[in-house]
Design a protein around this nucleic acid. Structure first.
Length: 765
RNA sequence: GCACCCUUAGCUCAGCUGGUUAGAGCACUUCAUUUACACUGAAGGGGUCGUAGGUUCGAAUCCUACAGGGUGCACCA
């Protein structure tokens, strides 16, 4: 034993220690091989450029398991293609993640006993808040980058891009201007989703629906009784609508009826609208255009007949009645009450006055909630910037994206997600890209003459009538970062929905990172693969296709690979409130990144959720050590070799051993094929199975008999040693994309090798 | 309401364009122990592939219906 240690690295006498992962990563990074420009060009026809733009993690906290899946899957492809000799680019990034980050930051403020409003109150508060969030984000960003390194991502850090880099913002502004000039983006006042907690509008995708049980009140409006949940909005009613063919109300249509109400005797008009379902409730519905999307639509269809929105709830979700009922004490008693409280009191008061016929206490309906905080969203009529996806935009933005997937230019893996993609794209609505938050890219617009920016234009009861373009509001609009010439320009205060900027990511990053010597767009666009979770197919992928094609005329990526979401051991969604969140960095600490990566890859098929089991990680940690010990045995035997053989391969290997060499090449081919067809689970499992149960369990045991048997010939032994050594190297190559650290750690200690790093070894023999 | 996915061993999941006795990991049972490796090895038990039909020489795989679980989209007060 003592003799052996002279020839072999002493490290092998101990179990594999994954704490060396960090050092290995530093060596890789220093080598410069993550950067495609530094890879030695190989005259290989098998290797067209391979590129992935990393989905930029939100720079507002630590990585979660989903990020680990992302890194594991993408690194497999990147390392594989790099070893195949492809010019390989994996471009990392970080997302400022506007709304999400501001929410995280506000939670932090809350914990500190303050809020964003406290900061905004101060002079220059907006800037102060922005700077605080910026500092917070940048700190998290570098923290997060360290974590991406710990997971072993072989990405080109020299090209790292942040969504707020000036060059990115330039591209975003350019796109916005082009959209504006092409008439594909417009400002309109319409009813939108408003979160009373976060004080911003949200796009339709950011609304979460939840089934609730609420009382349904049957309210007497003179001769008509109608059913409503939102009793408190009655002060904003401007009509009652019935179905045009409803015999019960036929005679009343077009007439004004007198109504005994809390506000005293009032008159209200009856209108006919196809939208009303005669079977629901009493077949009559109150129309409150300011606080209900459907009612707003009804008003749109009856603008000449009835009054428009009367806003009686303010931006904080409190009753705001003074504009219409300042002199009416019966109504003003509700002033300032929160919606739920107002509803309760109004119900009580109306019941007392006999204005409520009956109450259905068990009414089930869906309520729209803020996807982040679960607050009930209040529909509000506000001017916002929209991307047109239904008129011209449908032709110019939506249809090309649908066609690209339909004709196979873009492939989605798994294929069934294409159906989901089509379904959404074919029913798409215009996209509200305005957010009333500070953390984001300002919308580069200036206004003059007329209604100005948010929220200064807002005076209760003063609703711009426009239903179309800002032009109709009598405004002058200027699109640009800098204030235009002349007096009276007011700057837009809204910022872009974060997905508007990240929706341009592949194009914008490659453009931003290009140099006079390297036009990355030319070299790597369209990118090879966009790999991300299926949960952001609409948020992100669909928009990248639309905007990417709009900006460049080319698809942004050829393949979309959508990984499943990781759930806990019991298939439950991970969430902080459930306390079942797995911290990937803790797992890395305990078992090593290789083990975590394998556990996340094996048994994880695209588009299908997987559950996380620590026992599995432990199993692959054991595998790391198995591989380590295989190396130990092989090197130990190799060190015993006395002959410094100059013989060729053909002469050294016995016929049986040549078969073993053929066999591992077949296995490698199978692994390669599976990687290329995006079956990473299969690929990893095949490699794992071969190394443990064929190489270790069968071949080593077989060779052990030869090597430890005095009676065997030296030729046999020499072939055995050589074949084990070759199989070890080939196994390391085959496993490297999956388990980069342990394989590199062993490679580093090999006495004879072709390269300085396994990372840049040739995959082919 | 519309759409999509899932249902295979005790658990978590693979099984690609239909083709010999249905696989893996974990768990379980028995055995081995101065072994390259206990972060080990050997052997083994365990499945009428959700249900009912159909197509086929042949179905876990394709088709239809149904049931259960999940997700997305839409949404009527």
């Amino acid at each position: 034993m003592l003799l052996v240690t002279i020839f072999m690295n002493e490290d092998f006498l101990k179990p594999y220690d994954h704490s060396q992962e960090k050092d290995i990563y530093s060596l890789w990074e220093k080598s410069g091989f993550f950067n495609p420009e530094n890879l030695a060009p190989r005259p290989s026809p098998l290797a067209p450029p391979f590129s992935i733009i990393m989905p930029p993690p939100n720079a507002n906290g630590s990585l979660h398991v989903g990020h680990a899946v992302m890194v594991a899957v993408e690194d497999v492809m990147v390392r594989y293609w790099r070893m195949r000799g492809a010019p390989t680019l994996w471009l990392p990034g970080a997302d400022h993640a506007g709304f999400e980050t501001q929410v995280v930051f506000e939670k932090k403020l809350e914990k500190e006993g303050t809020s964003r409003f406290e900061i905004l109150k101060q002079e220059g508060g907006r800037e102060e808040l922005y700077n605080q969030i910026k500092a917070f984000t940048l700190a998290n960003k570098s923290h997060m980058e360290q974590q991406v390194r710990q997971l072993g991502a072989s990405c080109d850090w020299s090209k790292e891009t942040f969504t707020l880099d000036p060059k990115i913002i330039d591209t975003v502004y350019e796109t916005f201007k082009k959209l504006y000039d092409d008439g594909l983006v417009y400002r309109d006042t319409r009813i939108v989703n408003w979160c009373t907690k976060h004080q911003t509008t949200l796009s339709d995708l950011e609304v979460k629906y939840e089934e609730r049980i609420d009382p349904l009140y049957y309210v007497k409006y003179g001769p008509i009784t109608l059913a409503t949940v939102r009793l408190e909005t009655k002060f904003g009613d401007t009509a009652i609508a019935v179905h045009p063919n409803d015999a019960r109300y036929k005679d009343l249509i077009g007439k004004e009826i007198e109504v005994e109400a809390i506000a005293g005797k009032t008159k209200i008009k009856i209108i006919a609208d196809e939208h009303v379902d005669p079977a629901f409730g009493t077949g009559a519905v109150k129309v409150t255009p300011a606080h209900d999307a459907d009612d707003y639509a009804i008003w749109q269809r009856h603008r000449d007949e009835i009054e428009g929105p009367k806003e009686i709830i303010d931006q904080f979700g409190r009753m705001s009645l003074a504009s219409y009922f300042a002199d009416n004490a019966d109504v003003m008693k509700y002033q300032g009450l929160k919606i739920a409280e107002a509803r309760k009191q109004i119900a009580h008061d109306m019941q007392e006055r006999g204005l409520i016929e009956k109450v259905d206490a068990e009414y089930k309906h869906n309520v729209a909630l803020c996807y982040k905080c679960g607050t009930v969203l209040e529909p509000r009529v506000l001017p916002q910037w929209f991307i047109d996806l239904t008129k011209e935009g449908n032709k110019k933005l939506v249809q090309p994206a649908i066609d690209a997937v339909k004709n196979g230019s873009i492939k989605i893996v798994p294929e069934f997600q294409e159906k989901i993609f089509f379904h959404w794209m074919e029913n798409i609505r215009d996209w509200n890209i305005s957010r009333q938050i500070v953390w984001g890219i300002p919308i580069p617009v200036w206004y003059r003459n007329g209604i100005s920016n948010f929220p200064a234009y807002r005076q209760a009861g003063n609703f711009p009538i426009s239903n179309n373009r800002e032009k109709n509001m009598g405004q002058e609009v200027y699109i640009g970062k800098e204030k235009p010439e002349g007096e009276g320009w007011i700057q837009e205060t809204d910022v872009f929905d974060t997905w508007f900027s990240s929706g341009q990511w592949p194009t914008a990053t490659l453009r931003a990172q290009s140099t006079p010597e390297h036009d990355l767009l030319k070299e790597f666009y369209p990118t090879s693969v966009m790999e991300t979770g299926y949960d952001i197919l609409f948020f992100w992928v669909a928009r990248m296709i639309m905007l990417g094609m709009y900006m460049t005329g080319k698809i942004p990526f050829k393949t979309v690979y959508l990984h499943g979401l990781v759930r806990d051991k019991d298939k439950q969604k991970m969430s902080k409130s459930k306390g079942n969140v797995v911290d990937p960095m803790g797992i890395v600490e305990q078992y090593g990144a290789d083990a975590l990566r394998m556990a996340l890859l094996v048994g994880n098929s695209p588009g299908q959720d997987a559950s996380f089991d620590e026992a599995k990680v432990k199993g692959y940690r054991n595998f790391s050590n198995k591989l380590w010990n295989i190396a130990r045995f092989v090197l130990e035997q190799n060190a015993k070799s006395k002959v410094k053989s100059q013989k060729s391969k053909d002469e050294i290997f016995t016929e049986a051993d040549k078969e073993h060499l053929k066999r591992i090449q077949e296995v490698k081919k199978e692994v390669a094929g599976n990687i290329e067809r995006y079956r990473f689970s299969q690929a990893a499992e095949i490699a794992y199975h071969y190394v443990w149960h064929e190489f270790a369990d069968i071949l080593i045991e077989e060779k052990k008999k030869i090597l430890l048997d005095e009676a065997q010939s030296e030729e046999e032994k020499e072939s055995a040693r050589a074949v084990l050594y070759t199989l070890l190297i080939e196994s390391l190559k085959m496993l490297h994309p999956f388990m980069p650290f342990v394989t590199e750690a062993i490679y580093k200690r090999l006495p004879h090798k072709n390269m300085e790093f396994l990372m840049v070894e040739k995959w082919e023999e």
